[in-house]
């Protein structure tokens, strides 16, 4: 039997639940693998895992937020043959990555500033906070399984890969980014396809009553579909909620935010550019708020913009 370990980092638990809910496919994997560690499901302690000399497949969920998480991620990865980043936090940093622009101390102060009572003293070995990272900042995994949480489709692909590894003993074409190599728009049930998409302006989610058939962009509602990899078969769009980009960019190494503003540039008010001119276009674009939270909600930590900021701060070579 091969050994499989599922490690939680800074998680919400969504990936745990998603993985536990895949059903029969998981049983197929268990024909080849023994789960040596998975705290939410298996009653085994960290000391049990430390006693394991080699791990065949390691699934890391969540980001890396403390010195202890960082050390553990490194230590376990170094004794693992196949490393999997499961979920958008692990792959791209996820929503907590939005705090990447602040220091951990600044974040801590905001949270604790709301308390009514403070006790001073020592920290009882509370692990040190480090600048938040994705698992992919710690090691280069072999398989990247994005999604918040990963969809059934991505998890099926992951489990197939794990079975293939168990049979063949190797993973080809690493790193493998799961999901389908196309934008969400490509097979969108709402995509008009025959006509060019025109964005009639920019509206916020609360400003319009959403049409449940029409392309969100054609309603003036930001939908991250054009800049997002198809990992989900449009689960949010089908509930009449625009894509917020949890699948990350189309390709590994891509960038959601710059791709998305490029797309918006192509479609926003395309039929009235020459009458609105620059001032008119500016007025409309000014309705766009919170670029970071809108375009990099899940991927800021791995984005070009984050790298640019680090460069600005002198943190990049």
């Amino acid at each position: 039997m091969l050994k499989l370990a599922v490690i939680p980092g800074a998680i919400c638990g969504g990936c745990d639940v998603a993985l536990a809910s895949v059903g029969e496919k998981l049983l197929d994997v268990l024909k080849y693998y023994e789960i040596v560690y998975w705290p939410i499901a298996i009653d085994r302690k960290l000391s049990d895992l430390e006693a394991v000399e080699e791990i065949d497949a390691l699934i890391y969920m969540g980001g890396v937020s403390t010195s202890e998480e960082y050390e553990l991620a490194r230590k376990l990865s170094s004794k693992s043959r196949v490393k999997v980043a499961l979920g958008t936090c692990s792959v791209y940093g996820g929503i907590p990555g939005l705090n990447s622009l602040s220091s951990p101390l600044e974040v801590y102060k905001v949270n604790m500033g709301k308390s009514d009572h403070w006790i001073q003293g020592d920290s009882l070995g509370l692990p040190q906070l480090i600048p938040y990272m994705a698992y992919t900042d710690v090691v280069e995994p072999d398989i990247l399984a994005p999604g918040c949480p990963p969809s059934g489709k991505v998890l099926d692909q992951l489990l197939e890969q794990l079975i293939e590894y168990a049979v063949k003993g190797e993973i080809e074409h690493k790193p493998i980014l799961l999901g389908d190599p196309e934008s969400l728009c490509n097979k969108c049930p709402r995509n008009p396809k025959t006509t060019k998409i025109k964005m009639p302006g920019i509206y916020r989610l609360h400003e319009v009553e959403l049409d449940d058939k029409k392309c969100f962009l054609e309603q003036g509602i930001l939908c991250m579909g054009p800049a997002t990899r198809n990992i989900c078969d449009h689960s949010c769009i089908k509930t009449n909620y625009p894509c917020t980009g949890c699948g990350g960019p189309l390709e590994w190494g891509g960038d959601s935010g710059v791709s998305m503003i490029s797309s918006i540039g192509s479609i926003l008010l395309v039929d009235s550019e020459k009458s609105l001119l620059e001032p008119g276009l500016t007025r409309e674009i000014d309705k766009l708020r919170d670029y970071i939270g809108t375009f990099y909600r899940y991927t800021l930590r791995k984005s070009m913009l984050y790298k640019l900021r680090e460069l600005k701060k002198g943190g990049l070579k």
Partner: peptide, 20 residues
């Protein structure tokens, strides 16, 4: 040119948000 205008306008806003 209008496409460029919109993109550059948005890009500049985005840069400002990350402190560039």
């Amino acid at each position: 040119n209008f496409k460029a205008f919109k993109r550059v306008y948005m890009l500049r806003k985005m840069l400002a948000e990350v402190g560039v």
